[in-house]
C-alpha cells in the first residue's frame, strides 16, 4: 500500500489556485523530492499531506487514511519540518521539546537523547530567541523527529545549517529503511541525488513527475526559468 496517494488534488487560497490536478504515489521507504520556483505550491502540498490544509478537490490518502476525514488517525505518524520551526521563542529548546514530547506521549528521555545527538545539550536551557538560526533549525529537526514519524515532510531541511550540523541531522532526516520522505528543495544536484522520484511543480501544476534515473539537472533548472 502506498504511503502517499494523491489523485487530482486541488487547493485554493481565495480565488488563487495554489495546487491544481496534482497526482502522485509514493511507496514506503521512498523519497520524493519536490522542485519548483517560489509560489509553485511546494509548501501547500506539504501542508495538505501534513493534514494542516484540506484538499479542495481530488483525493489524498496518507498512511492509508483518507484526508481530511481520517486525519486524526495519522497525526502523530507524520513529522513536518517547515520554514517555521514551530517552537516558542521564549522557551528553551528543552522546554519546547518536552512540550512536544508530552503532546506526542513520548518519553522525556528521548528529548535529552536528541539534544545530545544534535549537539544542543550545551545550549538546551537558553531561550530559543537567543540561539542562532542554525541552532534553532537543529531544534526544529529534533521536534519533527521526536515521535519517530513514519512519514517525514521536509521543506528545505538543511537551510541555515553548516556542514557539521548537516552531518548531525542526516541520521535523523536522511534516508533510512522504512522512512518515507517528501522533501522540498531548490538544489537540483543534492535533491536528485537523494530522490527516488522527482516532482516538478510550476504555478501549482505538475510540470514533471519521474523516477530519478529519468530526470536531468537541466530539466530541474528549466523549472525556474
Amino acid at each position: 500500500m502506498p504511503v502517499v496517494q494523491v489523485e487530482g488534488l486541488a487547493r485554493r487560497y481565495g480565488e488563487r489556485e495554489a495546487l491544481s490536478d496534482v497526482s502522485l504515489r509514493l511507496q514506503s521507504g521512498q523519497t520524493l523530492v519536490v522542485f519548483g520556483p517560489n509560489g509553485a505550491g511546494k509548501t501547500t502540498l506539504l501542508r495538505v499531506l501534513a493534514t494542516l490544509l484540506r484538499p479542495h478537490a481530488g483525493s489524498v490518502e496518507v498512511l492509508g487514511a483518507p484526508l481530511p476525514q481520517q486525519a486524526w488517525s495519522v497525526r502523530g505518524r507524520i513529522g513536518l519540518l517547515g520554514h517555521e520551526p514551530l517552537l516558542y521563542r521564549e522557551l528553551t529548546a528543552r522546554e519546547n521539546l518536552r512540550f512536544h514530547a508530552r503532546l506526542h506521549r513520548v518519553k522525556l528521555s528521548r528529548v535529552d537523547e536528541l539534544l545530545e545527538r544534535l549537539g544542543l545539550d550545551g545550549r538546551a536551557d537558553e531561550p530559543l530567541r537567543t540561539l542562532s538560526r542554525g541552532m534553532v533549525q537543529r531544534a526544529a529537526v529534533a521536534r519533527a523527529v521526536l515521535h519517530e514519524p513514519e512519514l517525514l515532510l521536509l521543506d528545505e531541511p538543511r537551510a541555515n545549517l553548516d556542514p557539521a550540523a548537516i552531518e548531525l541531522v542526516e541520521p535523523l532526516i536522511g534516508p533510512a529503511p522504512g522512512r518515507t520522505r517528501v522533501i522540498c528543495s531548490h538544489d537540483p544536484h543534492g535533491g536528485i541525488s537523494e530522490a527516488d522520484q522527482v516532482l516538478g511543480l510550476r504555478a501549482g501544476c505538475v510540470a514533471l513527475l519521474r523516477e530519478r534515473a529519468r530526470v536531468s539537472v537541466e530539466e530541474i533548472a528549466g523549472l525556474y526559468r
Binding site: 494542516l52 502523530g76 503532546l103
Partner: peptide, 17 residues
C-alpha cells in the same frame, strides 16, 4: 498570539491530541 505567530497552532494540530 504566540501560537499564531510562532507556529504553535500547527504544532498542536500535528499532534494526536
Amino acid at each position: 498570539v504566540a501560537d499564531a505567530d510562532q507556529g504553535g497552532f500547527d504544532a498542536f494540530l500535528l499532534a494526536p491530541v
